[in-house]
Structures are given as C-alpha cells and as structure tokens.
Design a binder for these strands. Structure first.
Lengths: 353, 353
DNA sequence: TTGAAAGCGGTACCAG
DNA sequence: CTGGTACCGCTTTCAA
C-alpha cells in the first residue's frame, strides 16, 4: 500500500470541511449540513449564506464521513469476471451497460465497473464489495458456480445477477428466456425442412449455455429428430471458437443441413468456416444465431437470430437493485424477459442441394 | 436517492464492528486494530485470538471508517468518457486495461472503471472523484479540452492522463510518439515509391488525432510532396468512419496511390471501400494503419501498421499514479513511449498499375 | 428554524 | 506489547 501516514486526501493543504463552511457562513455545522442534505427546514437566508461559503471554499462533502453515518455510498458496482479481451470484444456488454446506466443516471447513482482478472483479484474484490464500498452489486457473465454472489448475499450485500445462477441460490436475477428462444430457433429450422441440425453451444458452465442447448434439444425431441452429443460442439461465445466448432461438426457430420449457434459472434465464425468449405448458406446449410446483435446484419448472408432485450435486461437489473435498496429487502426475485426470432437470409428458403 | 434512514449497509442486523471482535477476543479495540493493519507489535497470542474472533464473526473492516481516518481508499478510478458502444468496440481499451490491472493487482489496489455517458454524468463523476472515493484518477480518450482533469488536479486529486491533453496543463501524462510513428509510416510509403498519399485522420479534437496528422504532414513536407487539406479526411477511429472517409478521398482524388489511416480499425474500413471500388491493395493503393491491433493480421491483405505499446502505456500510467501517491507529489510528469512500424502486405512492393 | 452534541467505526498516539 | 482515548468529517436527534 502507499506510504504510511499520508493523512488527508488532497496532497496540498487538506480540503475544506463542513465546519469551515459553517463558520464562514456564520451558522452552525448542523445548519450547513442541512443545506447539503436538502433538508426542508433551513431559512432561505442561511441557505444562501452556506451556498456562497461552500462555493468560495470549493467545498465537496467528504464521502467517507457521510457514508460512515448514513451507511450509503450512492454508488453501485457492476462485476464482470471476464478477461478484458472478451469483455471489450463482446457486443453484449455495451448494450447491458447502456441499459443499466440509463436507470442509474436518473437516480444519481454512480456506476462503477469491476473486472476481476484472476482468483486473487476476485478475493480482493469480495473484500472491496463487502466492506461497504458500494450499496449493491450487479453481476453478469457468471461461470460455473462462482461463489461470489452467494457469499456477498450472505454477508448482507444486495446482489442482482444477469443470467440465472448455476446452482440454486437465493440471489435475485434477471434472465432472458433462453430455452424458449433456442427452441423457437430450432423449430424454425425444422419448419424450413431441415432435419440434420447441429448446435454450437455456449460455455456449458454458464446458464445461458446450458439453457440454449436445452431449448435446442427440446425442439428436436418434440419433432422426433436426432440431436445426440455428436451434434453439439461447445464454444466460448467468441468468433474463433465458432469457426472451430463448425469445423469440428462438419468433420463428424458432413451432411449437416443446419446449425443453431448460441451467439451471433459464433455464428459469424461458423459462416467463415462454411465459406472456406464451399458450403452455401442457406442452400446447403442454414444458420441461426442468438443475440440479434449488430453483427447479424453485416454478415453475408445476413443472419437469422434470436433477439434478446439486453438493454431491458440491464434496466431491469438496475431497477431490481434500487428497489431492494429502497425497501431494504434482500432478494429472491427473478425476472424472465421474452425473446423473439428474427428471420433473415441465413435460414431462408434456399434450394436444397 | 434511496429511502431515507436505511442506516447500516447490511440489510440484516448490521455487520460486526471492530469493537465486537475485540470483545470476543478479549483484547482492546486498539490491539484488534493492530492485527488488521499488520502492525508489528502484537503478541502471537493476541493475534491469534483476534483472528479467530474475526473469522467467527465474519468481520470485514468498514472502509468508510478506515478511509475517514487514513485518507486512503486503496482504489483508483479509470475514467473513459466514451459511449459504451465505442468503449467496448475499440481494441485499444482492453489492452490498456490489462496493463493497468497488472500493476495495480500487485499493489492490491482496486481498479474501478467509470464511463460517463453525458455531461450530467460527468458532473456527477467530478463530485464522486473529488469527494475522496478514489485515491487517484487515470483518464484516457480525452476529447477537446475536457476540463475534468484540470479541475480534479486543482482540487488536489492526483490525475494521470493517457494521451497528451489538448491545451497546456499541469497534469501528468503518458503518451506514445504519435508524430514519430505517423512520420515513419508515411516515410515508408514514400520509400515504396508512393507519391499521392492521403490520410484518414482520427478525431481532430484529440491529441492522437492531431499528432498523427502532424507526423503525416512532416513526412510529406520533408519529401517535397503535396499534402493539402483535400488529402485529409477525418474519422472517429471506428470502422465505418474509415470506410466513409476512404470513399470521400477517392471522390476527390481518384488517382491516390496510398493512404495512411490513424487507426487499424479505420484502415479495415478503408480496405472495405477499396474492395468495393475494385482497387487492388497494395498494387493500386497502399494502406498503412496505426495500432498494430489484432485486426491488422486478419484483414486481406494483412495490414502494415504502426505498433504502439498500449499495455506498457497502461502500466506506465499506473506506475506514475502510484509513485505520485507514494511521494505525495502532484504531477507535471510526462512519459513518451516509442512506436515501431510493422510492414505487412498492404504496403508491400506491389506492381504499380 | 437553529445549535449543541452524540455518535458512525476505525486508527494511531501516548502512557503504562 | 497493550489499553485508553482523541479524533476523522458528517448526519441527526434533542432542546431551545
């Protein structure tokens, strides 16, 4: 840590305190405080005096002191435990952040993004979060059974997850209907006459990965089609993993006529592989993605995809957290948002063979 | 803000205090405190007792209280005032964050990312930062003469910038040699026999944008070539802006034989346009980018580019900030990192015409 | 409407 | 090595 004994934040002669503002304004500290907490009972005269004094001194209330007594920080943390290269590459996150920001900005709550990059980081982060640095925590992109949300919850920190947690958990979450979305995608492929349908799944240590596979499977079973394990190939939601998975599937099943990808980015990777293999899309193989992200309209051919309301997910997460903060209730709420299939060229009625 | 009077962070019966830990351990609060501040003078026996009690109570020191007295938060903020879609799309940021994280992790300092999305956000952020929520601030992607860094600096907050500030400023910064990098790129094009060399600049309200244009210009002047304003077209570092700028340049100068782009992503956009226009690269037009980001090796043809040490920039920013914190000195330091031209196919010795 | 004063939960100085 | 204690800066009763 920094050198010991560096008392006072400002490097120069410490920042002004409420006491000093009060003195300059000729009122008591209590009255001055009331001005900054927007308390109703202050005379206009006193109010003006305090405001003038504060401006003159460039006074900013010390958050630590305020937090110590109110128990609030007016900021909330968004935790995304992904490597930076992933975090910044995936079109999912900016949309989520936008939704969250919208809601928080209105409430004047500061959003801080936290990106643990290692187990050590995550341990330290747990301390940071449970020590009262933030009023609540939003968390997305959970892998496996990351214990962090439950541990924070037990400690009394309010947590809202984006995406269902792996195991049963008392933590609130917002999710999209991944099973239903995947099912509708595959039902669409079946309706288009496809019969040998493979899937490139997301990471199977994530709810979204498992659930989309489940939806795929449900649709096949309902139609009496084969969807055994050789028809699944996991990816990590990234483009390269999609390309590799497509290749693996083709190696095992050269006669595939459709593939459902658990993300648009992976679908784009799959299209790359198909192009290299001289497979026509959709004539030879139909492709459907998931996310309906911007990339879906810039691929060739354009990509059919399951639209999920990511901004709304962010908004709902923020709302849930704020509501919890307001009411002082702990959690256990869950919200599931609907998805919608958007059909484009990649699954179109192509001439078969 | 949240409902009034919601004292105590944990929704349940408030978290344990140092006092309670001390009592359970049978020592004084002072001794218990010494255990957590790693003070040398504690008997092993007392230490053990305190640790046991803390574990039993799941004690976590209250940061607000600690900050109030030490004046430190052990966290630093990284401010990136860009729209989320940009922030998460540009390959520059993950590399920067990785560099910063590396250094901070070792020091057990928490990095928090702050992304003001509007003028209102930025105002609130200024309050957040100057109220002592963080020990120092890193800031990149400054546009125009954003007053935030200087205002924070004046208030006594330690600030380190990535990229030189627009106007003269007392704030410390780390930058790469943008002028030199751009110059070497254009000198390379000249050496390859190109004579009608245009440039797609970055935003001209940013140091990197201005400096790379300067370097381009320097090289042309030195070679006695024309680089008037009709040969410049500004972009925003994004791919689409690169494509549009390329088109604009071709409209004005159909006989261009080279273009220097202030970012690889814009260069990729330019390549798209050139492909559509049936221009061969590098035979008809040579292209050089800037960043040497991952995209440079995945374009067709692969992209010559100016490599800048982004991770190192992040590391250096973090080091500068920590050094300032340690020494209690304010700033005024500047570090310039070297760049290096990487030649690939897009500027290769193509047959001309 | 205002002021005095009691903490909030720690840290660190000073005696012992 | 340990305990007592004076703050850190602010919010919020309680009385006036």
């Amino acid at each position: 840590m920094y050198k010991e004994r560096v008392r006072a934040l400002p490097q120069n002669g410490s920042s002004p305190t409420l006491e000093e503002v009060a003195k300059l304004a000729g009122v008591s500290r209590a009255t001055a405080s009331r001005v900054f907490t927007a308390s109703p009972k202050v005379s206009p005269r006193a109010k003006r005096a305090v405001e003038r004094a504060a401006e003159k001194l460039r006074y900013v209330p010390n958050r630590a002191a305020r937090t110590l007594v109110t128990g609030r920080t007016d900021s909330i943390g968004l935790v995304i435990p992904e490597p930076t290269a992933f975090l910044f590459g995936d079109p999912f996150f900016p949309r989520l952040v936008r939704g969250i920001s919208e809601v928080l900005s209105r409430r004047l709550v500061q959003l801080v993004l936290l990106m643990p990059q290692s187990a050590g980081d995550e341990t330290r982060l747990e301390g940071y979060l449970s020590a009262g640095h933030v009023d609540g925590v939003l968390m997305v992109s959970l892998h496996g059974n990351d214990p962090l949300p439950d541990r924070l919850h037990e400690r009394g920190t309010l947590v809202v997850l984006g995406g269902r947690p792996g195991a049963s958990s008392a933590v609130s979450y917002v999710d999209v209907d991944n099973v239903g979305g995947a099912r509708s995608a595959v039902e669409h492929l079946i309706a288009m006459g496809r019969r040998r349908i493979a899937t490139i799944t997301g990471p199977l240590d994530m709810g979204a990965g498992v659930d989309r596979l489940q939806g795929y499977h449900d649709a096949l079973v309902k139609a009496g089609l084969n969807g055994d394990a050789s028809m699944h190939q996991p990816g990590d939601f990234g483009q390269e993993s999609g390309a590799a998975a497509m290749q693996a599937l083709l190696d095992r099943h050269p006669d595939l006529d459709a593939v459902f990808c658990a993300s648009d980015v992976m679908a784009a990777g799959a299209l790359d592989t198909l192009r290299r293999q001289r497979k026509r899309v959709p004539q030879d193989i139909a492709v459907v993605g998931f996310d309906d992200s911007t990339i879906a309209t810039s691929t060739a051919p354009t990509l059919s995809s399951v639209r999920q309301p990511i901004e709304e997910m962010g908004r709902e997460m923020a709302r849930l957290l704020l509501a919890g903060l307001d009411s002082g209730t702990a959690g256990g709420k869950r919200v599931i948002l609907v998805t919608e299939l958007v059909v484009r060229a990649s699954s179109g009625k192509g001439v078969r063979e």
